[in-house]
Computed example of a mutant assay.
Amino acid sequence: MNILIIEDEPVTARNLQHMLQDIDPAINVAAILPGVAASVSWLQQNSNACNLIFMDIRLADGLSFEIFEKTKVEQPVIFVTAYNDYALQAFKSNGIDYVLKPYDMEEISRALQKYRKLTGEGLNTGAQEQMVRLLKSMQEQPVYKQSFLVHYREKMLPLEAAHIAWFYTTNEVVQACTLDHKQYTIDFTLEQLQQQLDPHIFFRANRQFIVQRKAIQEVDFFFNGRLLVKTIPEATEKILISKARVPAFKAWMNA
């Protein structure tokens, strides 16, 4: 079996490759690709070079769903992702699986078994059509969180997501700062917020910040290829984009 891995974290991609080959030494990893552009180019030139694709969702240069918009994908896909939302359930219930990070060998092996059971090492026409329908369903507009119920003194207030400039975490407490510079405690982690917020509006800058597009005033160059994001209102600490995250941030800002 020839497998294509689409994953922008090199260590994660190599670990997955070793895991697949430990499960079945006959597996050949045809290529490891880091992003949307590289995947589109490879698939256009090597459309029959793999039987199955393991694919992350959020890549350095965009969402992997863009691949299906730019080129024809005939192979079944197992999504390997840190994001577990309703759309992924469609794949799980229809024979094409997803694996939630962090994963282990048992989960990868189970995903491969599901693929083999569905396809017999190759998709029939009906399965191909089913896969295409499922892929399209994942590209439908998901429902993102529109508001939060927050504690304020002796009350609970609705806080619209559109009015939040940035989220910040320290000592395992997440604060939301509004565009008019009011701060509230939010009962979610940044990881949970990253799944619930519209990725076209909010960007996970680093381990401490999620920032909204409207709050960004300017972006300055910083040491070692990083970027410094300046917001209104001003953040409590520097919002730095790592060198590895810069391409994704630029693609998000240019969207």
Rank of each mutant, 00 (worst) to 15 (best):
E9L: 07
P10A: 09
R14S: 12
L20V: 14
L20S: 08
I23D: 06
P25F: 03
A30F: 09
A37M: 04
S39A: 13
W42D: 14
W42R: 12
Q45G: 05
N46M: 07
N48M: 14
A49L: 08
D61K: 05
D61P: 09
F68A: 04
T71W: 04
Q75P: 06
V80D: 05
Y86P: 06
A87S: 15
S93E: 13
V99S: 02
E107L: 12
E107R: 13
S109T: 10
L112S: 02
L118I: 06
G120M: 02
A127C: 08
M131F: 11
R133F: 12
L134W: 08
L135I: 15
M138W: 06
M138D: 02
V143S: 03
E154S: 14
L159E: 05
H163K: 07
F167H: 10
V174F: 07
K182N: 05
T185P: 00
F188W: 13
L193A: 00
L193C: 01
I201G: 09
V211E: 03
Q212W: 11
I216W: 02
N224E: 09
G225V: 06
R226D: 08
R226C: 15
L240E: 02
S242R: 07
K243F: 04
A244I: 14
A251K: 08
W252D: 14
